[in-house]
Design a protein around this nucleic acid. Sequence first.
DNA 1: AAATATAACAACCGCGCCTAT
DNA 2: TATAGGCGCGGTTGTTATATT
Length: 507
Amino acid sequence: MTPSTAVGTGNGGGAGAEGGLKKGPWTASEDAILVEYVRKNGEGNWNAVQRNSGLNRCGKSCRLRWANHLRPNLKKGAFSPEEERLILQLHAKYGNKWARMASQLPGRTDNEIKNYWNTRIKRRQRQGLPLYPHDIKPLSAQSQPTTPTSPLPSPTTSTSTPTTPTGIPTSMFQFHSLSPSSMHSLSPTPPPHSPLSSPHQHEPHTFSSFPFTAPSSFTFHRPPPILAAPIRFKHFRANTNTTPVFTHHPSLLTHSPTPPPPQQLSHVDSFQFPMTLATNSPSPSPTSHILQTHSGMVMNNCMGSLKQDLSPTQFHQINVPHTGLSFNDDKVGSAMSFSSGVGLLEDLLEEAQVLGCDVNSNAKLSSSSSCLVSPGEQRLFDDFHKLAQDSNTCLFFSTKAKEDGGECGSPAASEDWSKLLNAAIPSNIQLPQWYDTNKEEEQQISYGQTVSSALPNHHHHQQNQDDNVGELDVQQLAAFFPVATEQDQPPVTNNSSCPWDNLPGIC
DNA sequence: AAATATAACAACCGCGCCTAT
DNA sequence: TATAGGCGCGGTTGTTATATT
């Protein structure tokens, strides 16, 4: 439902006065109030919104409304091919860490990505297709799943190989036959620190194309991350016991006692797409398979997460005995037995490493906790406010979304997005992307200045808890996707954070 | 062409966890 | 240590678009 539709519904269904707090669809006036409040007071302290703004909404509701609908520069509309692919890559990397994924998809919210993904899951499951195209491999360390632990290193990888704190051991994605148009922004033109030069390269794997069929191909090695991983693993949960850390590391997957059918996962690293599901196992419940396979393990507790978090592909990869794929039970077992305690310890250790090896990053991180309001932002808010006063708040955003990001589906938009990636993702996030889409001067600021230098007005930023994460993630992504050349990007002179970084799905 | 079924999308809520105080 | 605030994610529901009959 779009804000505009919500407007029409007024209180709307589900709007209950539970505890006096309104629920359900937001009205335009409520939106305006909230926007105005944020404009004046900044984000955070959402519960105060109710007290101070007169909004009869709980803080959480306000936060969600802001983050998912009112926040400037939100993209609306369909995901562009680049975004879709990035989602695949990120999901392969992080699992169901929607917020993390959103942090690397400018203008997209975690909820949006989650919805997209769930839709995709349903569709592909119906079609009997693997979730991941064959050229995107959920790598091991991608301890996937979902896990509540995604940011954590899998025990397997974190302890035995140089890994990123995200548990991705010098992992890489390899893309083949990606059309320039679709991948140019992500093109691994190997920079000096390119992943291609990673000392920890795995043997290249080949994949056939998806969804593009351009003849060109390349092998994309994920580089050792610049900053390793987010320093804070805020959402590591102690109950990760419920989520086995399945790794899809080739080493775990390639020792198959029963070679898989050529057509399916003939090589774990390069399965065909569309991958035909095991003909002998008509889409059986992966869960049941796993239970059959590893009944002695913690599967019971795992399944809940697994069924949601592991893609069918992943399931197939795990589901060795039936698909012909196999993995080392010991490794898997150890991985699965990986418990929160161990994870935390390793987490800390890795964090310590990160801290120890990247002082600059820390400095940057420390500097990222300030909220900045630029003149441009102020003006943007003012503009919004004017519109809001006309009760067209929602329309405004809808329209604006189209103006800003709605064209993302077009080639031009793709290019813009690519530029955005190139310009913004690299080691320095300077401004929230929405700045550069609104006003030329913001754009100038975005690309040519750092926030701190351009926007000295630090205030109102109370929730920066995840700044680090977002920023580091972006940097990881930067390492992931070789970035723009100098001519494309004004030299960055400072490390500053974007005030909106901490919002889910902003940067 | 209309009615119905299905899929896709959008939005919201509840729960649990983490962090700061 | 207890508590409140904030956040992330899973799940659900409602709406819209598309396909089928």
